[in-house]
């Protein structure tokens, strides 16, 4: 365990110092996070200024959804996206073999190899927005609601990770992963607003096919005390399934890889 922890520390300090090379980019990433958030808030304003409530959610609750989404976006850019790119590189350049020879779980290695600072502004902004939405609400959140909401948020991170890892596994067969990732990210955009703000067909698709509803609407719903512990159960099941799927699929892919590449 200590070995894993040390590995992690070395990986991350190396990647952070590499990132510092591009200081202008970091400033731009922060700027673009703020602007995106501004744009999203403008969208909320355009909806709510007429008295319309998105899917029956008051605006502070909808704001919590925006916050959760922004937070997840940051987590994705910081921890997940850079590692996905790396898996693809490993496959393309044939260096995956070296990873497989290391005495460390290959999925662990490939999932935590690098971090990128670009997502940090979104993580901070996302948490701040959630905090603002919860504290300015007429009825403050209950401790139980907050706890279950945070648990759901953790599960959402797990879901996002598992989905992403499923995608990077595909690169064993199909190297040009970038576009698949882009396509998935475009669809995940749905999570920026409460799922009930969408028509029925959308709701069905984004709950049962691509579980975006469980990633943003469910944590926000629990945190704001809009009830529905059955949703938490659902989130546990979905996250567990996705994680198991990502591990199983990786093992399957490795079997294919090791028998095909020599």
């Amino acid at each position: 365990m200590k070995r894993y922890f040390n590995t992690l520390r070395i990986f991350w300090s190396a990647s952070i110092s590499a990132e510092m090379e591009y200081r202008v980019n970091f400033a731009m990433a922060a700027f673009s996070s703020v602007m995106t958030l501004g744009g999203t808030l403008m969208m909320l304003f355009l909806f709510y200024r007429t008295g319309y409530e998105m899917g029956g959610w008051p605006w502070r609750d909808a704001l919590a959804v925006v916050g959760v989404f922004t937070f997840l976006e940051g987590m994705q850019a910081t921890f997940m996206a850079p590692n996905r790119t790396r898996v693809t590189e490993h496959v393309r350049e044939g260096t995956l073999d070296f990873v497989l020879l290391k005495p460390i779980n290959s999925q662990f290695w490939l999932s935590v190899r690098t971090v990128s600072l670009w997502g940090v502004p979104n993580i901070i902004l996302g948490l701040a927005i959630v905090g603002f939405a919860l504290t300015t609400r007429e009825t403050p959140p209950t401790l139980a609601g907050l706890a279950s909401g945070l648990l759901a948020l953790g599960l959402a991170v797990l879901m996002l990770y598992s989905l992403g890892y499923l995608l990077s596994t595909i690169s064993i067969w199909y190297i040009k992963l970038y576009n698949i990732t882009m396509a998935m990210q475009a669809l995940v955009e749905t999570g920026r607003y409460p799922i009930t703000a969408y028509p029925g067909a959308y709701q069905a698709f984004f709950t049962f096919v691509l579980p975006v509803a469980f990633m943003t609407t469910v944590p926000a719903r629990l945190m704001t005390g809009r009830g529905g512990t059955e949703w938490l159960l659902g989130a546990v099941i979905v996250a567990g399934l996705l994680l198991a799927l990502s591990i199983g699929f990786w093992r399957f892919a490795l079997r294919y890889y090791t028998s095909a590449s020599s």
Partner: peptide, 11 residues
């Protein structure tokens, strides 16, 4: 896949 990645207006 780009045709899918640009589906934001449809969302």
């Amino acid at each position: 896949l780009w045709a899918v990645a640009t589906m934001l207006p449809l969302i």
